[in-house]
């Protein structure tokens, strides 16, 4: 727990550091994430720190004290604009409500990279994110393939109105349309919360005697659903999204069928890389949408590495990671 942001495994990237250190370094990059509680954003922060260290820049982390608080993130933007960091790597807590904040950053002429949730407005020098829709589609397809294209399915949704949830659930539903043999029993929200997902699942099992597949919009809810199934001594195939450590462990032990890789680490790395490259007048990629990868029992090994020991992709690899 305490091995906080480890900067241990960097020597590997000396070469990369060497090649990009040509210009002035020591820039300060402000990283904005949504909350301190979701493991996903921790992977983003570690990725960003990792890349900044490699490129000899500094990061400052800005996280609302109340998870996902819109007024607080707006205040933090206003404070940061006074502080004038060299560049900002920005995840909006809400993709529509934070637009005025982005515009403030634009007015202050601080270069900003958008990561994770695509902001509905404002000017960014680059976007780095994953495609929630295809992640939902691909993981759901994988589950339906495993079930032979039929069976009773339930969807556990995330927070209503959040961009990730809208797209992931749309992906789930489109995959279900491709398999006419599968039947959607219910689609209920678990608000990305473990306990809520567990209780929703427990309740759904009461009204449905046969559930074959569970599509959960994130890993915490998927694992909550698995605990509910275990508690009732029932079996179903479950998938989640995000590729968190806990999901990888569950895949390893055969409890979770698959998880869509949201790759926060790469998002943090590449977002920070683009910000620093633009400051150093090097070319940047204006849009990186990471390819959807479904993590399963057959390919989990590369993901089963502690965050601190992972290495950021290089600029050359970045282009290949993108789906477009």
């Amino acid at each position: 727990m305490k091995q906080k942001l480890g900067y241990l495994a960097l020597p590997l990237l000396m070469a990369a550091a060497f090649s990009t250190q040509a210009r002035a370094d020591g820039e300060t990059i402000a990283i904005f994430t949504k909350n301190q509680t979701n493991p996903f954003f921790q992977t983003v922060r570690v990725g960003a720190d990792n890349m900044a260290k490699t490129l000899n820049a500094k990061t400052l982390q800005y996280i609302p004290t109340k998870p996902d608080s819109i007024p607080e993130q707006l205040s933090q933007i206003e404070d940061v604009v006074v502080k004038k960091p060299s560049a900002i790597v920005f995840t909006p807590v809400d993709y529509k409500a934070m637009v005025p904040g982005v515009e403030k950053i634009n007015e202050a002429k601080i270069p900003v990279v958008n990561i994770t949730d695509r902001s509905a407005g404002g000017k960014f020098l680059s976007f780095v994110g994953a495609d929630d829709y295809s992640l939902g589609l691909e993981t759901a397809r994988f589950l339906l393939k495993t079930l032979g294209g039929k069976g009773n399915i339930v969807i556990i949704e995330g927070v209503k109105g959040s961009l990730t949830n809208v797209d992931r659930v749309r992906g789930f539903n489109d995959a279900l349309k491709e398999s006419p043999g599968a039947k959607l029993l219910a689609s209920q929200p678990g608000n990305y919360q473990r306990l809520q997902a567990l209780q929703v699942m427990e309740n759904l099992m009461q009204s449905n005697s046969q559930i074959d597949g569970v599509l959960a919009a994130n890993d915490a809810m998927a694992v909550g659903a698995i605990e509910a199934l275990d508690g009732a001594n029932r079996k179903a195939q479950v998938i989640g999204i995000n590729g968190t450590k806990e999901a990888i462990d569950a895949i390893k032990s055969g409890k979770l069928l698959a998880s869509g890789d949201y790759n926060g680490f790469a998002q943090g790395c590449l977002g920070t890389m683009m910000a620093i490259r633009s400051l150093r007048n090097q070319p940047v990629i204006s849009e990186i949408v990471l390819k959807p990868t479904v993590i399963t029992k057959d390919n989990y090994q590369p993901f089963d590495v502690p965050l601190e020991q992972r290495t950021c992709p290089t600029f050359e690899e970045a282009g290949k990671l993108s789906a477009k």
């Binding site: 301190q36 493991p39 921790q42 694992v223 605990e227 508690g231």
Partner: peptide, 29 residues
């Protein structure tokens, strides 16, 4: 409430604790 939240956030650093002995899990499930 806020002091505890701060402590917990610091202590967990965005991680999740998971996977406990089967005997222990009997208590809850």
């Amino acid at each position: 409430l806020w002091v505890l939240n701060g402590l917990t956030y610091w202590y967990m650093a965005g991680e999740t604790l998971h996977g406990f002995p089967a005997g222990f899990r009997q208590i809850g499930s």
